[in-house]
Design a protein around this nucleic acid. Structure first.
Lengths: 219, 219
DNA sequence: CCCAAGCTGACAGCAGCCTGAAGCCCGGCG
DNA sequence: CGCCGGGCTTCAGGCTGCTGTCAGCTTGGG
């Protein structure tokens, strides 16, 4: 497995690098966000280990930008912050896991294994839905063979329907999925995003059930 | 999402149950492993919250048996054990996540969301009633295999009968369920909706008991 | 046979939904 | 540091079809 380690503490970084290498993975170690950004642009990693406090910025900003770009590479956060709110922010920003320093290197190995198990193992299954071809893992969609680009929110919304085909999802449920519990929307955002999705994927991808919610269309 | 909570501490269990319910999930709460085992045999859960120390055995044994059986339902461990080696054992036994008591309820919510996001669903439980197939969670009904669409009010009414199969429900009770306490209807609204339901689902789904109320039909 | 209780077709009003447009926010770039 | 641009949210106006109401009919009990 190819792992990108972003950590500015030289002692901890070296220890982590050695542990990962001992587990048989290959590691690239960056100490700054800008070089890490370049590294990710140039190569495909299977996992990112991300410190939150870095000399040239916050790890959370980096993570949000990554997810906003549609990148789904698994991310495990390593940080000294042990406040609950920080953990929640991290998970909501799209992290897959969270380790608080000081952590045990053996636990890091276990967590890496746990994350890896979820993502590797099977080639990406393609779901066909009418004239759409959907690769959920890669977050890519083709309509009539032509690629369609979805934004982060659009994908999050569509993915909610893919997770449970045929299930009716209320706007409240969808809001909960698109936004953290704390975040609040008090307008018709969901409706707007549904509208956009329909424009990109076809009017019949999502059915409205008045007063109840939405449902994946039946092609 | 349908969640099985296995926890023998009544105070913590109630708090967790309430938090999950507030997040919009449905919860079954078991205090023993044997009843939990029965529950999992009888229904498909989307997530299991598992305490490790239970009156009739160890949670880890339960988890290993589950995984050994090929069950991949996501499991989050809740426990007072905070040794790193305990965490590693838990993750290696097949747990998806690990929370050490005392934990913050908001963080539990975040972790549940994190697990849910990467989870690809178990089918919802389907109730068969005569020629009807009912998926309460998905709010979908098939009659003779063909999908039937219910409106919001129709579904609310029908769901009232599904919640208590065989029980007689007076019009007053039904009005109370369909409308907020204050809202008042002074006509035969319930009768009208029952009529519409019968038209969609068949005349025998709901039986009339003159002067008393209605009852789910017995196919 | 009569009356009370329930059933159902028709319909108007309005809650709920859709969508174009405008403003805001944030990351990227000069 | 300031501008630029894409994405997200909010708002407002228009439309759809669900829902409560009513009237006339049917059913069941005594």
């Amino acid at each position: 497995m190819r792992i990108l380690l972003i950590e500015d503490d030289t002692v901890l970084g070296a220890a982590v690098r050695d542990q990962i290498a001992a587990d048989g993975h290959s590691v690239d170690w960056m100490m700054r966000l800008d070089t890490a950004r370049d590294a990710m642009a140039g190569a495909a990693y299977d996992l990112v280990l991300l410190d939150l406090m870095l000399p040239d910025g916050l790890g959370l900003t980096f993570l949000k930008a990554l997810r906003g770009r549609g990148d789904v590479t698994p991310v495990i956060i390593l940080t000294a912050l042990d406040q609950v709110s920080d953990r929640i922010d991290g998970l909501n920003a799209g992290a897959d896991d969270y380790l608080v320093k000081p952590f045990d290197l053996a636990e890091l190995s276990a967590r890496i294994g746990s994350v890896a198990r979820r993502y590797t193992g099977n080639p990406n299954p393609i779901i066909t839905h009418g004239t759409l071809e959907i690769d959920r893992a890669a977050k890519s969609i083709r309509r009539d063979g032509k690629p369609v680009a979805l934004t982060a929110r659009e994908w999050a919304l569509f993915d909610a329907f893919l997770a449970r085909p045929g299930q009716l999802l209320s706007k409240a449920q969808l809001e909960e999925k698109l936004y953290a519990f704390d975040a609040e929307v008090e307008s018709n955002t969901i409706e707007v995003h549904v509208s956009r999705l329909r424009k990109k994927l076809g009017n019949d991808v999502i059915d409205t059930e008045r007063g109840l919610g939405y449902r994946l269309g039946t092609p």
